[in-house]
Write a protein that binds this DNA or RNA. Sequence first.
RNA 1: GCCGAUGUAGCUCAGUUGGUCAGAGCAGCUGAUUUGUAAUCUGCAGGUCGGGGGUUCGAAUCCCUUCAUCGGCUCCA
Length: 646
Amino acid sequence: MIRITFPDGSLKEYNKGISSLEIAEQISPQLAKEVYAATVNGEVWDLTRPINGDATIRLHKWEDEAARHAFWHSSAHLMAEALESLYPGIKFGIGPAIENGFYYDVDPGDGKTITEADLAAVENKMKELAAKKLVYKRKEVSKKEAMDYFTKKGDDYKTELISELEDGTISLYTQGNFTDLCRGPHLPTTEPIKAIKLTSVAGAYWRGNENKKMLTRIYGITYPKQKMLDEYLVLLEEARKRDHRRIGKELELFTFSQKVGMGLPLWLPRGADIRQNLIDYLTSVLRKRGYKIVTTPHIGNVNLYKLSGHFEKYGTSSFRPMSTPQEGEQFMLKPMNCPHHCEIYNSTPHSYKELPLRMAEFGTVYRYEQSGELHGLTRVRSFTQDDAHHFCRPDQLREEFKSIIDLILYILRILNFNDYTAQISLRDPDNKEKYIGTDENWEKAERDIIVAAGEKNLETTVVPGEAAFYGPKLDFMVKDAIGRKWQLGTIQVDYNLPERFDLTYNGSDNQKHRPVMIHRTIFGSLERFVAVLIENSAGKFPLWLAPEKAVILPISEKFNDYALKVLEILNNSDICTLIDDRSEKIGKKIRDNELRRIPYLLIIGEKEAVSGTVAVRKQGEGDRGSMTVEDFANFIKAEIKKETAL
RNA sequence: GCCGAUGUAGCUCAGUUGGUCAGAGCAGCUGAUUUGUAAUCUGCAGGUCGGGGGUUCGAAUCCCUUCAUCGGCUCCA
């Protein structure tokens, strides 16, 4: 007998060799139908794998990621089997489960392609195979056995993977006529895979290396019930409606022009208003927090970037330097504001008493992003950073860093971004040549960030290899409508640029000392931030950000005079207001202006004209009753104040 | 940059195997209507079917090329 401990702490005895599935069945047959994987002694296992000793166990139903992963990973194998039967000789790369579904990287063979048009056939084959209730069989094999199998099969991607594995840790999974190298775990059978949708085909470099062959990546998702798949597809459709590129066009926020150039956003008046509202608001917050606002040019001498290291690092992959009539003189579009800010720091001597110095700029920078990477406002070649650099003494660094975390969290809260993640990005220990600066400085900086984030009780993930070339960073990321993660705010500790620019301050000992720099943004780029804001709000901006706060809708032309009077009063009170005096019925005007996402609609007819009031209708919520024009103006101002002060 | 797909009026889309196929709805402009909380009616105007080249008696439709967009990959100071 073995003793099995359950998550609630309860303990039961079973025969040795019992599987998680059998345990589930003994608890309830219904449960057995709903579990897809089990964690045994901390490791996720196949449900059918025998347990041979005392163990702790946790059964995973669909709600657990481990269950979905097993489900989708098994689906990837199922898709592979379908592909192999439809495309004999096809080779397989990797085929993991992902956050929403799974993919498999395949090489259909020279000259052969798989396109989206072919997916339906693969899908049908998968359904056919799944219905056979094929059993997923695990087999642990030696490295040589695995090697022999895939060499014979001619799948050189798999043999490449195997050659890097350690003997004794290799397992194969077989279902039907398909065997794959795989760690598992998998479902017991293909039976639960009922609803199948292959979503897209894309190219993907083998092992993520752009010098290696490009494989065909097929994405798909599966569910145990058709209804769940339908719901997912509806959700995807809803997300597409929130796409900032679509809403940006609908609401006339921004546009692009091929004549101007790809990746160069043109802000339309309504978008520019939102952008300006963000700048004005953040500026006032920054001033209260001791920041000094500076402004620097859009270009800088190429030597500036040679000194900072940017040229060496990005010179060949960015906008090329431009020359002047002067022989040998070259300038670059600025890709970063920090070198300029360093020179502002250097323009006067500094005492330890004036540190920390907080220098902020809404600085527009230019980066030559690869053409395939451009994406609406989130990835552009010209964008404005809400950039700032804190120059501080080493002993101030940690407090300064923590105060920036506070500031970022404050702004995220104001803007209702509750679903963010924080990531600490460190140097890649195996590729130190990618970075500038000494090991000592890097270690110091990395420690600073980890400690500061820890003291703020910030939940973070640590990712080596994601640091900037001059220093480690703490990034705040949010997701867009389709689930892609975007970096917004970032805080970076930098000991290196101060050395390169020879920044100093006089200490209390009257000796020269080296300050530490913190680079930080809150929005990141205003372009990207507005994009994420659009997708978060589906274009229903908070009142304080909305380009227009209200629109006046006269019931008929008879009330236009009064409407114009109201318009004047509100605009004079700095409440940007529109009027819709078209010869349309009120229902039509309400509909159109609701769709424009104007926060308040003010309906004006006989009653209002006589009593000097407006009938207020809130966007998305409906009739709010009448109030005087003055009361409405005060109400709007109070609302804005409430929104921007926490 | 790489792989794949797409590209028809301002927007969303029709356009069967190449042969009155250049269309619809919304938006716009006209005129009528003067309206009480999510679409009033009439008429008009809008496009070298992304650009260039080719095949053909004939191309939105087939081929080549180029540009852009979309989905990924790589990259992201």
